[in-house]
């Protein structure tokens, strides 16, 4: 009994250990160093790759790097053209950054769950949570930035009064003003929350399942983690794609003047 309880506690401990970020500070001023570090490194990777392609960009025959970068650009640009009917210098680069960055965050999920924390512990780092998208701070940081952009463009395109009118008088006309306002506020606030929680939830759950698989005997693990990893390749791409497309859609809604 005692050993069993201990084992259960060991498993729980293992899970908790894996899901605890490396942090410094107290209260609100806590910083998750692992999230900051990995997302910055991945952002740097993204920037480095695309800058390399951009520096050598030629309208002649493209190289391998440029080819891939152009593929991504065209892919993102097509998405933007499909749903966004205004002119904006920001939205293309924004969508590209979101897609690539989120994809790279999510990609960290495919590293074996123990390998980076093990390397970390060798270097004296006790806790290490390597997937930035399993940190609500990372997903919310992105979705709140998008939310600010939505507000900014709504006010810029429709004017403060136009935006206020849209909040008050739609969808049911001026006689139901409070109701309209409530509905619209919920709708607007739901955008960043759903964006952030969708990404977080998917990746957190995915990571948790990897951790649970890692708790099983080693000879069962491949049979489970291999299909799950393959399935996860789909999920991480899909989640990055969804985040990007919804951002474009929300921003195009902000640009639409009724």
């Amino acid at each position: 009994m005692a050993t069993e309880a201990h084992a259960a506690e060991g498993a729980t401990g293992y899970i908790i250990h894996h899901l605890t970020p490396l942090q410094v500070g107290e209260g609100f001023w806590t910083l998750h160093l692992d999230t900051l570090f990995f997302s910055a490194v991945l952002g740097g990777l993204f920037i480095w790759f695309f800058k390399m392609a951009a520096d050598k960009a030629t309208s002649g025959v493209p190289g391998l790097v440029q080819n891939f970068a152009e593929l991504m650009i065209e892919f993102v640009d097509n998405q933007v053209k499909d749903s966004f009917h205004g002119h904006s210098k920001l939205i293309g680069p924004l969508a590209l950054t979101i897609f690539c960055w989120v994809f790279l965050w999510n990609f960290m999920d495919l590293f074996p769950v123990d390998i980076l924390p093990l390397i970390g512990s060798m270097m004296g780092i006790e806790y290490l949570r390597v997937v930035p998208s399993t940190d609500l701070n990372a997903t919310f940081a992105m979705s709140i930035s998008v939310f600010f952009l939505i507000l900014f463009y709504s006010i810029k395109i429709k004017g403060p009064w136009g935006f206020a009118k849209e909040l008050m008088f739609q969808p049911f006309g001026p006689w139901l003003l409070p109701f309209n306002l409530l509905l619209k506020l919920v709708e607007e606030i739901a955008k960043p929350i759903s964006l952030a929680l969708r990404l977080f939830g998917n990746l957190y759950a995915g990571e948790l399942i990897f951790i649970l698989i890692a708790l099983l005997p080693w000879y069962i693990q491949p049979a489970l983690s291999f299909p799950w990893a393959i399935f996860h390749i789909l999920i991480i791409t899909l989640q990055a794609f969804i985040f990007m497309v919804l951002t474009i859609v929300y921003l195009s809604m902000a640009h639409e003047d009724h």
């Binding site: 500070g25 209260g27 609100f28 001023w29 806590t30 910083l31 998750h32 999230t35 900051l36 997302s39 930035p132 940190d135 701070n137 990372a138 919310f140 940081a141 992105m142 709140i144 930035s145």
Partner: peptide, 8 residues
Amino acid sequence: NATLIGQM
């Protein structure tokens, strides 16, 4: 927490 600000 403040990580949010850093990430932003």
